[in-house]
Amino acid sequence: MASTFAVETRTRPPAAARGAIRIEDVVKIYDPDGAAVMAVDHCSLEIPAGEICMIVGPSGCGKTTLLNAIAGFHTITSGSIHLDGEMLCGPGKPKADPGADRIVVFQNGALFPWKTNLENVAFGPVVQGKMSKKEAHDKARAMMADAGLSGTEHNYPGEISSGVRRRVEIVRALMNDPSVLLFDEPYRALDSLTKSVMHEALLEIYYRNKVTIFFITHDLDEAIFLGHRIAVMTTRPCRPKKILEVDIPHPRDYSVLTSKRFRELMDETLGAVHEEAIKAFELGEKEG
């Protein structure tokens, strides 16, 4: 037990690490056909650098809107979002510029099907002009080997299983040395067995790279297993309802799932989430 503690202190991110996100009073109002729909309502959330923050909430509650605002895909109506003290978007600048410091791993995966896995992984540094094609390919090959993906370099994404695709996508993100990884329910479509493998692989990558992770999910097991903290969101409009610290020490492995503490946290989260799920169901929100 003592030894796990020692490891634990080591894996806690140093305070100076990059990737601290501050979301302040963000409001997002959609105006599709004249009728304003409030997707995010005065949402404030702070994520320390190097932490895994899990965003949990019912489908369509506006979690993805928040992620899109951080990534710079959408404007916000008011409020501000800061990354490491620098304003991404806020007063006078409704939309953040998308950039390689915040990389999204998409729900259905967004590896370019027309590029080989290697070309996909090397894409970032090449288009940014940071590396020559050859350098990028060499680095990509090395990183893929580290992640146990050797042998799939010259396959197209359509030829490998969805689990492997997700791993390639994460490696593609890490090639750019981002400060934040934004996950938009990436494992939603995977079966639970593959999911468990993906979770451990993700933690392993996290222990090696120490990036801040903003992870949207509605799978509570996933949230508790991965996260340092969990933000349970209210259904549309979206705002943190409850923030839980997950005090199970890192590094974790699958034995955590059966621990007593895990069950307790589960109970605590479930109560909050269930209430919102019922609200969402009654509103008749479509998946999305």
Binding site: A71, G72, P98, G99, A100, I103, A110, F112, F123, G124
Partner: peptide, 8 residues
């Protein structure tokens, strides 16, 4: 979006 994210 992924391409923009990756700095294209």
């Amino acid at each position: 979006r992924a391409a923009y994210c990756l700095g294209a």
